[in-house]
C-alpha cells in the first residue's frame, strides 16, 4: 500500500486539503485546475444522486459532484460559502463541491500512512492513504475513483 501511495504522489508532493463536515481530505495539487465559488447548477436528468448537475466554466460544460454524497456521507446543501474544486483527470474536467479548502500541504512520501484495514466501501474505493498533520488526520483521495465515468468504464 505504501508503494501505491508513493506512486500516486510521484511527481508532486503538494496536496490540497479540503473539509467536508468534520473530516478532512486531500487530493494531489497537480490535478487541480482552479478553485471557484458555488453558483447554481443545471440538474441533469437520470443522473446519480451525487451528481448535482452541470455548470458553465468559461464555455465548457462542467459536471459538479457532491463530494459529501459521493463519499457516502449525507448530501450537501450548497450555500455561497461552499467551494468547487475544478479537477482534471483522464482528459475530463470535473468540479468537486466541498465545504471549504483548508490547506495546501507539502509532504514527503514517507508521511503517507497506509489506510487502516477496515471493512468499508469507502476505504476500498476512495482512500489511498492517511496523513497526520499537526494532530489532524487527512485522508488522501483517489480522484479517478470519484468520477462517475470511471465506474461505467469498469463495468
Amino acid at each position: 500500500m505504501t508503494d501505491l501511495a508513493q506512486n500516486l504522489t510521484h511527481g508532486g508532493r503538494e496536496l490540497i486539503a479540503f473539509r467536508i463536515g468534520d473530516q478532512e481530505f486531500c487530493v494531489n495539487v497537480m490535478s487541480v485546475r482552479e478553485i471557484r465559488g458555488w453558483t447554481p447548477v443545471t440538474p441533469m436528468p437520470h443522473a446519480p444522486s451525487y451528481v448535482l448537475g452541470v455548470l458553465n466554466l468559461r464555455g465548457a460544460v462542467l459536471p459538479i459532484i457532491d463530494m459529501s454524497a459521493r463519499l457516502g456521507m449525507k448530501p450537501a446543501e450548497p450555500t455561497v460559502r461552499h467551494v468547487i474544486i475544478v479537477t482534471q483527470a483522464r482528459n475530463r474536467v470535473v468540479g468537486l463541491l466541498v465545504e471549504a479548502v483548508s490547506d495546501i500541504l507539502t509532504i514527503k512520501d514517507e508521511n503517507i500512512q497506509p489506510t487502516p484495514d477496515v471493512s468499508s466501501e469507502f476505504e476500498r474505493t476512495f482512500a489511498r492513504g492517511i496523513l497526520a498533520i499537526e494532530g489532524r488526520m487527512i485522508c488522501l483521495i483517489e480522484l479517478d475513483a470519484v468520477f462517475p465515468h470511471s465506474e461505467s468504464e469498469a463495468a
Binding site: M44, P45, H46, A47, V51, V54, G59, A60, V61, L62, P63, R92, V93, V94, P148, H149, S152
Partner: peptide, 13 residues
C-alpha cells in the same frame, strides 16, 4: 456544447 466531453451521454438529452 458537448456533454460527453466531461460527463457521459444522458438519455433524452
Amino acid at each position: 456544447k458537448s456533454l460527453e466531453a466531461n460527463y457521459t451521454h444522458v438519455p433524452g438529452i
